[in-house]
Design a protein around this nucleic acid. Structure first.
Lengths: 137, 137
DNA sequence: ACAAAATAGTTATAGTATAACATAACATAC
DNA sequence: GTATGTTATGTTATACTATAACTATTTTGT
């Protein structure tokens, strides 16, 4: 049993912590196999160790999967559990990824769900293009 | 040289036509390998034949890739070349996919691009959940 | 301590996509 | 019309992404 006072976030297993720390250090998106390679020295041997850790981290909102990159990125919002819907804005040149999460995003998703009579479970919103910096080169 | 009068859509190669017809017949999303299997009798032997046809069809807006399904679907709008941005609404139960393309979608994408100072090239908007029918079962 | 349940490790394999090279089809110049 | 360059297509091999099935370990409740 866990008697330690904490901030409300669930305890993470060793593997989950390793993956989380790595994603936070790198800050950009990493593929599952990049994560595996980076964590070999920490004892990772197989993809499933990565995927299982990611599954947990995604379920608690600390990591997101960027579908169009088949990659994973640490949540930039102190965890999205509360905030709900986010969008990713991806520069195809410098590969920088911004995570955007504001009222307009969740409003849009809510409206879309109503309009299509859907009970929404999950959304992926990803915008590719050139970031401010890369447009002017 | 092509001197035939047509509706403005570019000529498609035999393989491209086969893939396009299949996607239109099925109307739902198909993975590249499902397409390959369906077209073996028509002479398809290798994944690349499918991917190359898809690349072309996607570039002219007649087919979309649904990122979160790793699958491909015929455009339901007579081709999206003009219409621009679309969103996909996916029922996780019956696997039906609706393509939505209206002002509110493109407005949202435009706003997001401005807000993030991006020159947008491509967007993926995908909403997963339960459709109207599947909610009441 | 023991049984049941949850967690983690391992091996093998399925599913998705592209690189690299070979061949064929087609256009244009000569 | 044949040589030549260009584009489209075919083929083989391989890389990348993800999960199934099984085993071992750890944790938890009694």
């Amino acid at each position: 049993m866990n008697l330690v006072l904490n901030d409300g976030s669930p305890d993470l297993s060793e593997n989950q912590k390793l993956v989380m720390d790595l994603l936070e250090r790198k800050s950009g998106p990493l593929s599952a196999y990049m994560i595996l390679d980076e964590l070999r020295d920490s004892g990772f041997r197989a993809p499933l160790q990565v995927y299982r850790a990611l599954e947990k981290l995604i379920s608690i909102g600390k990591v997101h999967r960027v579908e169009s990159l088949s990659a994973f990125i640490a949540c930039s919002h102190m965890s999205c559990e509360k905030l709900g819907v986010t969008a990713f804005v991806i520069c195809d040149k410098c590969e920088n990824v911004q995570e955007v999460s504001d009222e307009s995003i969740s409003l849009f998703v809510t409206d879309l769900a109503i309009k299509t009579k859907m009970k929404a479970a999950k959304s992926n919103i990803e915008l590719h293009g050139l970031c401010d910096g890369c447009q002017n080169i």
